[in-house]
Nucleic acid binder design. Structure first.
Lengths: 209, 209
DNA sequence: TGACAATGAATGAACGTTCATTCATCTTAC
DNA sequence: GTAAGATGAATGAACGTTCATTCATTGTCA
């Protein structure tokens, strides 16, 4: 719409993946039918097969797009001025960007799929490892990371942070539909700040006291 | 086998649910067919319908059984002599009791289902709330819980602990099949002790120093 | 410019398969 | 003999996938 379409085929693929995200989040990978997706995208079923070999390929492409989106979030987190702000970006990106719950539901489904499909598991593990390495680096470089609580290393801290992030994502899908994006974001930020206090400010405060 | 069967109907139900757990973990709720379940249980398809109204009812019964199992774990955790041991029970119960990954895969699937099925969501939320209340209580009663790091309340600590537990459960499904139960348990225990150091021993150590 | 041919994006009915569910039939226990 | 337990072939709906067909757009030649 806003820009000239350099590659219409890429637009179509994106359009189909956008529709698939909505359908997958609403019904799950294997309960969402190709007809559901085509209806959501406003196109015919057959057209999907012009851009994707089969349903599996749609799922794989979704996972791949998710990988790229996560890497973009990591990039933004890297550029934040403070470690706390980096963490805030990481924790709120997953859960609040799109319409409520859609992304969280998709990611939980992705992990469920990963538990059965080794290819998906490899991709998710790869994304996770890259992200954790990035955050480990972020912590190691930041002044707060030097004297973290409990004598934990940057790597251990990063693992803990990502465990909490995944856990909150799981918690998010239990929330009723009525919760708005803003409410979810607020809840997430509260958790980040609590975690922050715990991991990075406790020791310092005690030393100062 | 080992005991006289007081209620054969209950045995059959358990037998079917045992088989369903294996199939659900292996294929997911909606990809596991009733034939898969009957084959795993060593009975005919039709017999399942004598004990369960339909497939949804099997899923609901599985969720319900899971609820009772979690409550038993909580009971055992309550009876542990120290808070650390309570946490160790809570963190290792989810992931290591049955054959590797089966339980974790089931729980991740349960959360995925909860994101679409409000009834399942209510049940899972209920289990979680009860468990968290129990652990909050456990922390409040324990000597270590009084002077926790970061000035966090028992409720906040409990929320954090359960977020990490859920996060580690998600991480568990990414692990390759080859990992044994013992390896998974060891990995979990390491996380518990790290969390323990962070939450409950840091302040004290510094005061002593 | 206008007439015509070629293209390939897009359609949706149809196909083969799978699956949840049913039920007529058989077996077992007392 | 009868009631309850157990079977698995049969049913029909739903699904992923295919493909003959349509038609707007583009290219070609006069």
């Amino acid at each position: 719409m806003s820009q000239t379409h350099l590659d219409p085929a890429l637009d179509r693929r994106s359009q189909i993946l956008d529709a698939a995200l909505v359908c997958f989040a609403k019904h799950g990978f294997h309960q969402a039918s190709m007809h559901d997706i085509s209806a959501e995208a406003g196109i015919s079923v057959g057209l999907i097969y012009r851009y994707f070999e089969n349903k599996e390929a749609v799922i794989a492409a979704m996972a791949d797009r998710h990988k790229r989106e996560i890497q973009e979030v990591l990039e933004r987190a890297r550029e934040a001025p403070t470690l706390l702000e980096s963490l805030e970006i990481l924790f709120t990106a997953h859960c609040c960007e799109n319409s409520p719950k859609v992304l969280s539901a998709f990611v939980v489904d992705l992990y469920a799929e990963a538990s059965r499909n080794p290819q998906v598991a490899n991709l998710v593990r790869d994304v996770l490892q890259t992200s954790m390495d990035g955050v480990t680096d972020l912590i190691a470089r930041s002044p707060e990371g030097k004297n973290a609580a409990g004598g934990l290393t940057p790597k251990e801290l990063s693992e803990l942070i990502f465990a909490v992030a995944r856990g909150m994502l799981m918690y998010d899908v239990l929330q009723p539909q009525e919760m708005t994006e803003a409410e979810r974001r607020t809840a997430q930020l509260e958790v980040v700040r609590r975690l922050w206090r715990l991991l990075f400010t406790n020791t310092t405060e005690l030393v100062e006291a």
